[in-house]
Design a protein around this nucleic acid. Structure first.
Lengths: 234, 234
DNA sequence: TAATGTGAACTTCTTCACAGCC
DNA sequence: GGCTGTGAAGAAGTTCACATTA
């Protein structure tokens, strides 16, 4: 336990520890701001941002206040300014180099997704073990080579890659993760349906499509009726 | 304020309200159990399950206890039994019909993912507006037709579809969601990078790959160094 | 001994409510 | 009037620690 007295170094970054959920929402605020930008609005209120995302206005203000004072009383938030500030906070005001491992169906689809580069993530290489895929260019990605997994260490180092996306079968994911981390990658986005065992110093984020569907199944099962059967009152 | 006395209707399903995070973890427990099954273990302890997923043993027990008493003192949990029970709770002990909207890169990749059917989700149709894609069969999905979006209402009703996956561009997502809901779909898994506006009665789950990467970027930015620039000590 | 199930303590997160500002 | 920023209150979720059971 730290026992640190709650002294505020006013002027610097706000809080010692930011609530995890707040950071997640920050990304959503940014996405919403980018939409507002396209629509041409100059300013947004916490209420507008909130209702667009299903949150209360107080929640929005509190989240933003963790990082500083971005708003203007009576006016709201300047869309352009707030977007820039959030990018700064998230660390996407400068580009990140990213590699993708796995050029199967999913990997290919992810590589083709334009949203990544728009958000400041630059795909520098795709790795796969299938000899037939090596040397190919993926559709729309003429500058991104598909290379063998034995190149992971070399390319990660050469391009100072800190982030990697794992889109390989579950059975291969842990091995791939180990190799990436050994090569210097420090953040993993894992699409394989398996829990990765990584050192504390590695940030891991996971997406499992089946898990997502199961959540929906659960929610429907409660408030409504299952696909069939189950005698129900009424 | 409600002031309801905390009376327990002992015997029925446990809690009036299950913590959302607990339900999310339930899916992960199931995934882990399925792995243990393949490995041949008869039983698991809350500790084993927990460490595999980066959770405490108490957390695991508390989560499971929301739904009943599944464990055996001194022994642990029976792998087969617990998996079956969790499937029951999640509602995946019986199959769900699912449709996918959007047969682009991502949609095609999602359709090809074998994990869905393995988990009890049956893809009955893929919708797209691109005339060139209609009538095609997606790779590995000979029984799943690609049809026009004007067929949404008919097919959703005919097959009693309750779940849909949205994999269309952001600009089209809200319209697609509206149509699906009007046709009777009650749960949406949204891959478009936009917040959907849906009635309370619709369950929505969202996956935004860019958001995931931004979370990683934030985490690295704190504990480590940004990709380049920024005068650093050393 | 090895493990569960659970009240109580604790921690984290969210909402309320209002002072202050435009 | 409209809106932010924030302390304080409240709700939600997690961990502790121990009685209990095999």
């Amino acid at each position: 336990m730290v026992g640190r007295p709650t002294s505020k170094p006013a002027g610097a970054i706000r809080a010692d520890h930011i609530p995890g959920p707040a950071v997640k929402r920050l990304s959503l605020y940014l996405r919403e701001l980018e939409n507002h930008l396209r629509a041409g609005s100059q300013t947004v209120s916490s209420r507008k941002l909130g209702t667009a995302l299903g949150l209360t206005d107080a929640q929005v203000r509190k989240d933003l206040a963790y990082f500083g004072q971005f708003g203007h009383s009576g006016i709201g938030y300047d869309v352009v300014e707030l977007a820039a500030r959030i990018r700064r906070i998230l660390g996407t005001d400068h580009p990140w180099n990213v590699v993708l491992v796995g050029a199967g169906h999913l990997g290919t689809a992810l590589a083709a997704y334009r949203g990544f580069s728009r958000k400041g993530f630059k795909l520098v290489a795709v790795f796969d073990n299938d000899a037939r895929k090596l040397g190919q260019k993926l559709p729309g990605l003429e500058h991104v080579p598909v290379v063998g997994m034995d190149q992971i260490a070399a390319i990660v180092r050469e391009h100072t890659v800190h982030l990697a996306i794992i889109a390989v079968p579950a059975a291969a994911a842990q091995d791939v993760a180990d190799r990436l981390i050994a090569a210097g990658v420090r953040g993993l986005l894992n699409f394989a349906p398996v829990a990765l065992n990584c050192p504390e110093t590695t940030a891991v984020s996971a997406v499992d499509m089946a898990v997502q569907l199961e959540q929906l199944s659960f929610q429907l099962g409660r408030a409504g009726r299952p696909p069939r059967g189950s005698p129900k009152k009424r």
